[in-house]
């Protein structure tokens, strides 16, 4: 069966969303799936972000295949189950992770780490369950780890958690791509 986890990363505006969307669409047609799901995690907290989201929405509206959009801002709903008729594109988990960090910001440090780890554990479990159920899941993320370690504790926390999450996904996934300005390198 074509169950798969596909991981795609790249720098900002490197063409990773376009590559991921095209890949999802071609698998959707080729494997004659019934549902093409887009998991969106962006929150329109300002004009720029709103435009960014609209731009992604327009791209999908103009596509010849029909996307169904599901919003997952932070907590992954319990009833979010899929089967082998689904292809899922989650773009992108860096936004989802920032939402998790933002949501837990007010907690004490110990409680916060517990909460973050809890969310990460659910994320990992879901991903593996979806694949077990025959889903093709495409995960898009950002490369933010190739620059000097900043002086902000929050940024470094984010980088560490994201890096470790990337390592886990790359280890578990079936295919991994790194985008470099529209060129892609397949690492796995």
């Amino acid at each position: 069966m074509d169950r798969k986890i596909i991981f795609i990363t790249g720098g900002v505006r490197s063409g990773k969303s376009a590559f991921a969307e095209n890949y999802a669409k071609s698998l959707f047609k080729q494997l004659e799936k019934r549902h093409l799901i887009y998991i969106a995690s962006g929150v329109a907290f300002d004009q720029e972000m709103k435009k960014r989201i609209e731009r992604h929405q327009k791209d999908r509206e103009h596509s010849e295949v029909k996307w169904e959009t599901i919003e997952v801002i932070n907590t992954i709903p319990n009833n979010l189950t899929f089967s082998n008729s689904h292809i899922i594109l989650w773009d992108c988990i860096t936004t989802w992770l920032s939402n998790i960090l933002f949501k837990t910001e007010m907690l004490t440090e110990t409680k916060r780490f517990q909460e973050i780890n809890h969310h990460l554990a659910i994320f990992k479990r879901r991903l593996l369950t979806w694949r077990e159920n025959g889903v093709i899941v495409i995960i898009v993320s950002n490369e933010v780890l190739d620059e000097p370690c900043g002086t902000y504790i929050e940024t470094n926390l984010y980088r560490r958690i994201l890096g470790e999450l990337h390592q886990w996904i790359v280890d578990q996934c079936d295919e991994a791509y790194e985008m470099d300005y529209s060129l892609n390198r397949q690492w796995k």
């Binding site: 490369e143 780890l145 190739d146 370690c149 980088r159 560490r160 994201l162 890096g163 470790e164 990337h166 390592q167």
Partner: peptide, 11 residues
């Protein structure tokens, strides 16, 4: 001498 290079938190 041997080198291992990569971004932070890349394993």
């Amino acid at each position: 001498m041997r080198i291992v290079i990569g971004g932070a938190y890349n394993g």
